[in-house]
Design a protein around this nucleic acid. Structure first.
Length: 271
DNA sequence: CCCGATTCCTGTAGGC
DNA sequence: TGCCTACAGGAATCGG
């Protein structure tokens, strides 16, 4: 599932082929993504130059010389770089062909992803207007989370996965960072001390940075195979490890649904 | 305002 | 082996 590090890795993978390139052709085979892709987008993209590719939250923001795109990978979205020699497969929903002859191809079996055309600056799109703090930027602090959280009654895991609070943290990194911070995922956010929030912020930052670094080392794989960096699986300490011993204390890792999502934690280390 | 529940979708895994 | 069902989850939207 693409979270912030996977989006960054994706952007790093396609930027060398897209930034500064002219889109000489766009082919959309499946318009029905999270939001239906507008019918005239192929024409609109024809001849557009890609000025910049940025990330905001889990969105890929493509700035064109006229207008732009907001792309979200949803659950199963991925890009690969190929050429017109390679035939699109079942869930390859759209291609951009650049003036250098590269084909930037989007695949998304579950179609929870999206591509939205913006007439103006995509950063001004309403979908971005209510997003929370960027976890790798200065403003994301323990006191911030603590202040906002003291009146909230929900579970801490739901709180840090809420994109209007802090962006980029999904189910996997939420489980992992709470484990490293020693906080039970079901704990109410109003019942967490400032010092624990400080620790949590450090752990969130640390795990996101580490994952980005590892993604960076597998760019080659990312380009060549299925667009999904497989780096993180071996790094995970609790996610997907129900029944396995905790790396700290040996107690079996539990799995429980919290905030409609499967959550993994050690009942002894996380309180 | 806050938050839990529901919804979209299809590949995969597990049961029989 | 094959069929069926449950499950996976990002995030908008709805309803209490």
């Amino acid at each position: 599932m693409p979270e912030l590090p996977e989006v960054t890795t994706t952007i790093n993978g396609i930027r060398p082929y897209l930034q500064g390139a002219v889109i000489v052709g766009a082919t959309i085979r499946e318009h029905r993504l999270r939001w239906t892709i507008r019918a005239d987008l192929e024409q609109r993209l024809q001849g557009r130059k890609v000025v910049d590719i940025q990330r905001r939250a889990k969105y890929i923001v493509v700035i064109l010389d006229r207008g732009g795109l907001l792309i979200h990978l949803g659950m199963t979205g991925s890009f690969r770089v190929t050429t017109s020699q390679s035939m699109p497969e079942k869930h390859d929903h759209f291609d951009f062909t650049t003036d250098a002859g590269f084909v930037i191809r989007y695949r998304d079996p579950r179609r929870f992803g999206s591509m939205i055309y913006c007439e103006g600056d995509p950063n001004q799109h309403e979908l971005l207007s209510r997003l929370g703090m960027e976890p790798l930027e200065k403003g994301f602090t323990g006191s911030c989370l603590y202040q906002m959280g003291r009146t909230r009654k929900r579970a801490i895991k739901a709180y840090i996965m809420d994109q209007s609070v802090v962006v980029g943290v999904g189910n996997i990194y939420a489980s992992e960072s709470l484990f490293k911070a020693g906080i039970h995922p079901g704990r109410k956010c109003s019942r967490i001390a400032l010092s624990r929030y400080n620790r949590l912020v450090l752990e969130i930052r640390d795990i996101l940075r580490n994952s980005i670094d590892m993604g960076g080392t597998t760019i080659q794989d990312f380009m060549g195979t299925d667009g999904r960096p497989g780096y993180f699986e071996q790094q995970l300490l609790v996610y997907g490890r129900a029944g396995e011993p905790c790396v700290n204390c040996g107690h079996a890792i539990l799995s429980r649904i919290i905030a409609q999502r499967s959550s993994f934690f050690c009942p002894q280390c996380q309180t």
